[in-house]
Amino acid sequence: MHVFEGFLPSPWWQLWFVFSIPVILYGMYKLNKLVSERREVVPLLAVAGAFIFVLSSLKLPSVTGSSSHPTGTGMAAILFGPAITAVLGVIVLLYQALFLAHGGITTLGANTASMAIIGPLVAYLFYRAAAKSGMNFYLNVFLATAIADWVTYVVTSAQLALAFPSAEGGILGSFTAFATVFATTQVPLAIMEGALTALIMKYVVQIKSDVLVDLDVLTTSAVTKLKEAME
C-alpha cells in the first residue's frame, strides 16, 4: 500500500528518508560489486525490475471487488536477496509515483521503508530459515510472500500511527485503528499474492529451473527432487 504524496507531516517524511537512504546506499554498493564481477547481471536486473513493475500493475482477482495489486517485492527478495531488491524497489516506486500516480516523492522514503526494505527483508529471512529447516519449497514461498505482503501493510499502519497519534490511546491507539482498517483487510490479499507467487514458482521449476539454481534460490539436488515429485 502506498502512502500518497503530502500525507506524512514534517518530521516524519524526513525521518523515513533517514531510515531508507543508508539501506539503499548499501544496496547500491552491493550492486556495484556484483556488476563489476559479472557484467551480464545488468540487463537481467533491469528486466527483473520491469517485471516487478508490470506484475504490480496487474489487478489481482479479488472476492470483495476492491481493487488490489500484488507487490511483487516478496518474490524479488527470494530471488535476488534483500539488498538488491531494495535498489530495484526504489526505482519501481519512483516509476509508480511518476507513471501511475501511486505514492509520491516526499513519501518515497516511507514507501521504500515499508515496501522495498522491511517487507522483502522479512520474506528473505523467512525463506532462508524455512529452507534450512527443510520446509516444502512451495509452502515456503507461499508463506514468505504472504507474510511479507502483510508485514508491509502493518509497517504502513505503523507509519501513519506514528505521524498521527491518537488523543487518548497515543501511538498505540491510532495504530490499532489504522491496523484494523488496513492490515486486517489485507489478509485475503496477502494470501492471494502468496498463492500466486508459489504457483508461478511451480511453473518456473517446471520450465526454467536453471534460473533458480543460478540465483542460488535452490540447489541442483532440490530442483531434481521437486521435478521428480511432479511426475
Binding site: 537481467l44 528486466v47 508490470v54 496487474l58 472476492v63 500466486l196 511453473y203 518456473v204 526454467k208
Partner: peptide, 30 residues
C-alpha cells in the same frame, strides 16, 4: 477471467510467462 478460479489460474500463467520471457529477453539483450 469468467470466474474467480479461472481468473486466478490465468493470472498465474500470465505471471509465469512474463517472468520466463523477461528472463530470456535479459539474456538476449546482454
Amino acid at each position: 477471467y469468467k470466474d474467480f478460479k479461472t481468473s486466478f489460474r490465468s493470472m498465474v500463467m500470465l505471471g509465469t510467462n512474463l517472468f520466463i520471457r523477461s528472463w530470456e529477453q535479459g539474456e538476449k539483450i546482454y
